[in-house]
Design a protein around this nucleic acid. Structure first.
Lengths: 337, 337
DNA sequence: ACACCTATCGCAATCGATTGCAATTGCAAG
DNA sequence: CTTGCAATTGCAATCGATTGCGATAGGTGT
């Protein structure tokens, strides 16, 4: 029993209902001034005709898009894929948190070739706010844009004096925790695997150094700039381990993915983990449960992290001023140390 | 030297430039009928004032959003996260392919509680087209909506007589390839790990049976409905392997993630891979390179898959009629078999 | 029965860019 | 110098929903 004249807009529905477009709008949208009776009548009519008001028109009038942009800058390493498990995990959590609050999530990977990728996005008018996952090496850009564009929050490390609002875990503490754990386990020669170009990684390395200094063994550290991307630096890790005249007995990996590569390289070299070499990861991703052996790691609580990001962003959209959040990472001991 | 009167819309710019709003529109957007001179003059003016036309207004007038919805139905298992590496990989590739074609990607996870989740999304007017990743157990819904909503493509298996347009690999052939490989390697007792509720998995299992039948060993198969989600069925896999009176000597995993769980469970049981048990995965994800031992797998070419999805969708948006695409999976032999 | 108040509803402007059609300008040919 | 044609530009309607303000209805109190 579909009526011939298809209802394309609010005006058509108004004609059928015998009221004005304005009334239909009030009936369908807000809790405007309208009688209970007509509201229900019109809503029923809309349901019957499968009519839904045009969102683009609404957006134009309301001056908001109902969407949040999630940007993943891949600055420091060209080969990196979004496929990094860390991003994916975070993305899923953000998707849930945003959906709950009634926002869409529009995803963009950006390779910052020029300096105004973020400006362009902020001014594009496509989104009501922006979440950037990972500072990469773009701290300067983030600070500059944050100074003029309010609805912007960033996942990543916090550094003194930064302008932008960030949510992240204490990477220095995390690096410290990881390293201290290895020291407690008796490691004497510790290697840090990770490219310290991104701020977060540099901070983890700093924490690592702190722990060693505190234990009075500042010279026990060697470093290898393994890429974060899965697969990119695998051969590099293997080569490094093979070439080392003295194999480290403890490896602090800058991410779980790097730790995984290290585990495999060690297995192929015939080194026992944790017998000869202990390995600790960083992130606390689910995949750490599936490695052989299961990966000890420093866990960031990404769930509350994602919720914080969304919460802060929405408050900023509402005009509030918010300050950064630093969460404490947590040691998860499994079988690799 | 920013002018005091901020340029908020095309009319303001027009006033400054001394032309009509229409002319400004033509200068900034399409290659409409306009002289080279004025176009450049206006574009320069726009740049100088950092003016960008309002996208929502444009969308309303043009009647398109410039966005594609990517939906991930999580029907068959409640606990599943978007964090599944397969989704992430696909998502990244789609993000790239869509960006290249000038579209935004809006991401939604859906838990199909009711039957019209897809209808609601299609009619929401938020996107110009929809890509659904994975049929889950929602084939009926997909077919019903596809019958009336054209711009819809689905990643997943193809079944005879389906209404919706899909892109995917030949899961039956894939299951066959995996199983045949194990048979060639001399396996006599083969176990299939995976919950066959989703169509894709059921097809892989079917291929598995085909290969066994062809080899005249139809009774060599046992099955265990491991969940796709990382971590969910780990203990299950371990229990199953422990309880089995006769350990299989070949495992066909329905995904790389499941294979990873199996590898770890076997390691903890002290079984040698590939010595005592051979394991083959499915998907060809990057993480298969990092397992111990490196995972033999059936690889789906997700890159061209993603490009196909986008290509078909855009052609459907343009009004074309497209038929489904089935790609051939490929055996990648590494060290686990 | 009359005035008054309020809950609803209609009117019309508005958001900002696009585009068909008409008008104008410019140029060249006759 | 005039006419004709084509290249540009201006005008105004349009996309569809929202909302402030004014109008009308209904109901209440005296």
């Amino acid at each position: 029993m579909t009526e011939r004249p298809r209802i394309r807009n609010i005006a058509d529905l108004a004609k059928i209902a015998g009221v004005s477009p304005g009334t239909v709008s009030r009936a369908l949208s807000g809790a405007g001034l309208i009688s209970q009776k007509t509201r229900e009548r019109i809503q029923a009519l809309a349901r019957e005709h499968e009519f839904r008001p045009n969102i683009m028109a609404r957006n134009l009038r309301i001056q908001r898009t109902g969407a949040i942009g999630v940007l993943i800058p891949l600055g420091h390493e060209t080969g990196q894929h979004i496929s990094d498990p860390f991003f994916i995990t975070m993305l899923g959590l953000l998707a849930d948190a945003l959906t709950e609050r009634g926002y869409d999530l529009v995803l963009s990977r950006v390779i910052p070739t020029d300096d105004d990728w973020l400006d362009r996005y902020a001014d594009s008018g496509r989104v009501d706010g922006i979440i950037v996952i990972g500072q990469s090496d773009q701290s300067a850009v983030l600070d500059r844009v944050a100074a003029r564009y309010r609805p912007l929050v960033v996942w990543g490390g916090h550094s003194r004096g930064q302008v932008h609002c960030s949510v992240g875990s204490d990477n220095i503490a995390g690096g410290d925790i990881a390293t201290s754990h290895l020291i407690e386990r008796g490691c004497k020669r510790i290697a840090f695997f990770g490219d310290p170009t991104p701020l977060e990684i540099a901070q983890r390395l700093e924490g690592c150094r702190n722990a060693l200094a505190r234990a009075d063994m500042p010279d026990a550290l060697s470093t290898f700039p393994a890429h974060l991307a899965a697969g990119v630096s695998d051969s590099g890790i293997a080569d490094y381990l093979e070439a080392a005249d003295e194999l480290p007995d403890g490896i602090v990996a800058a991410s779980d993915v790097i730790a995984m590569s290290a585990l495999r390289a060690l297995a192929e070299l015939g080194r026992a983990v944790p017998g000869q070499v202990k390995v600790i990861g960083y992130d606390g991703l689910a995949l750490g449960e599936h490695t052989v052996p299961r990966l000890t790691t420093v866990k960031q609580d990404l769930n509350t992290g994602a919720r914080n990001l969304v919460d802060l962003l929405l408050r900023r959209i509402a005009g509030e001023d918010t300050s950064s959040v630093v969460m404490m990472p947590e040691l998860v001991v499994r079988l690799s140390t």
